[in-house]
Simulated assay, not measured.
Amino acid sequence: MQRCIRCSSASRPPVTIDVGHLQAGWYSRRPVWWACPLAGLFGIVTALRRRLYRTGRLQQVRLPVPVIVVGNVSVGGTGKTPLTIALALALQAAGHRPGVVSRGYGGSQQTPALLGPGADPSRYGDEPCLIRDNGIEVAVGRDRPAAAWLLLAMGCDVILADDGLQHYRLARDIEICVIDGVRRFGNGWLLPAGPLREPARRALAADFRVCNGGSPQAGEWLMKLQGDQALRLGAQDECRPLSSWRGQTVHAVAGIGHPPRFFQMLRNQGMTVIEHAFADHHHFVADDFGFADDLPILMTAKDAVKCRGLVGADSWLVPVRADLEPAFFQQLLQRLSSPTAGRAP
């Protein structure tokens, strides 16, 4: 979905910034020329901020339990949330009680809060609600350390920080950087000239690098997002294989960081896909589904938490799971058992 931003002042006419054109340059050889000076300024601010935390000029908060950060150096659509869910379930299977702390992007909740079953995504954000729907304790808040303390009060013994790689105020014991295996780091430029929040070399400092699809490079763990079933919205005990729509035409709805990945997954199942791509964290309304036919609607699980009551009976969510080698989880648990993990200051 292409978006435009209009900037104006009293002294000059409005200037329209084509965000779609800007983002198209992120994954081409040449960035938009006027964004390059801004990228240089962004890099200076980013490097200074990280240096202030590294030297102790800005204070970090260390928790008395291990903290695992899951994040990326590029914006949008690398698969952080499915990986966070997979990590939490693996920790539960190993006897831990993990909790996930999130900023709650897209929600209205400002103060730290715990999510209950059936939490409202308009209040807490779509990704935290999706994680909570998987039976995982979640807390949101701008003050992530304060939100993490709510999880500790619930008895959590490991904290997972979703999309927390650049949130240096929360001290971490293990860093996991997720990389898009197809798009990688785009043109290699920082925002807004490119897709990077930090230089690509920052990924090398992480304890684990997870490559979502594509061909992993040296030192990276391959992650595959698998989805072969669909659940009917409002009746999630009703399950149907994606292959049952082979040869049929469907509406595909995705308001995620990289919608083409979802559309291609459906095409790989033999469907003819009518694409409906929305901005990441889009707030859906009934008019978004005003299609002039009765074709089935398939959407991502992240979108489905916001769409109950907005769509008809022939609407389905497609959950995905993150599959990694068992050795990845074994090494993670070994790191977690280190005597220094979660050590209070």
Score class of each variant (00 low, 15 high):
Ala148Arg: 06
Val158His: 12
Asp120Asn: 15
Asp133Asn: 15
Thr111Leu: 12
Ala139Ile: 12
Leu130Glu: 05
Leu114Arg: 14
Asp162Thr: 09
Leu150Thr: 02
Gly106Ser: 00
Gln109Arg: 14
Thr111Gln: 15
Leu165Cys: 00
Ala139Thr: 12
Leu152Lys: 03
Gly116Ile: 06
Asp143Lys: 09
Asn134Phe: 02
Ala148Gly: 07
Glu137Gln: 04
Thr111Tyr: 06
Asp157Phe: 12
Pro145Tyr: 05
Ile159Gln: 03
Arg169Ser: 00
Tyr168Val: 02
Pro121Tyr: 07
Met154Thr: 12
Leu152Ala: 10
Pro128Ile: 13
Arg123Lys: 14
Glu127Arg: 03
Gly155Ala: 13
Val158Phe: 07
Asp120Pro: 07
Asp157Gln: 12
Ile159Trp: 04
Asp143Phe: 09
Gly116Arg: 11
Val138His: 10
Ala119Gln: 01
Leu152Gln: 01
Gly116Ser: 15
Asn134Arg: 13
Gly155Lys: 05
Glu127His: 06
Ala161Gly: 14
Pro145Val: 05
Ile131Leu: 14
Gln166Asn: 06
Leu151His: 11
Arg142Pro: 01
Leu150Ile: 05
Ile131Phe: 13
Ala139Lys: 08
Ser108Tyr: 00
Asp120Gly: 12
Leu152Arg: 11
Pro145Gln: 05
Pro112Asn: 13
His167Asp: 02
Glu127Tyr: 04
Ala153Glu: 15
Gln109Val: 06
Pro121Thr: 07
Cys156Ala: 08
Leu130Tyr: 01
Ile136Asn: 04
Asp126Ile: 04
Thr111Asn: 13
Gln109Gly: 04
Arg169Met: 01
Leu170Met: 14
Ala148Lys: 09
Ala147Glu: 11
Thr111Arg: 14
Ala119Asp: 08
Cys129Pro: 06
Ile159Leu: 13
Glu137Met: 00
Arg123Asn: 02
Tyr124Lys: 02
Pro145Gly: 08
Ile136Pro: 01
Gly125Tyr: 05
Leu152Glu: 01
Gly155Asp: 14
Asp163His: 09
Asp120Trp: 09
Asp133Cys: 04
Ala113Trp: 03
Trp149Thr: 08
Met154Arg: 15
Ala153Gln: 15
Val158Ala: 10
Gly125Arg: 05
Gly125His: 05
Gly125Ile: 10
Asn134Ser: 09
Arg123Thr: 15
His167Trp: 01
Pro121Cys: 06
Met154Ile: 01
Ala161Tyr: 13
Pro117Val: 09
Gly125Asn: 08
Tyr168Gln: 08
Trp149Glu: 11
Arg169Phe: 00
Leu130Pro: 02
Val140Met: 07
Gly141Leu: 11
Gly135Gln: 13
Gln166Ala: 02
Asp133Gln: 15
Gly155Val: 10
Met154Gln: 15
Leu160Tyr: 11
Asp126Phe: 06
Tyr124Asn: 06
Gly118Leu: 12
Ala113Cys: 08
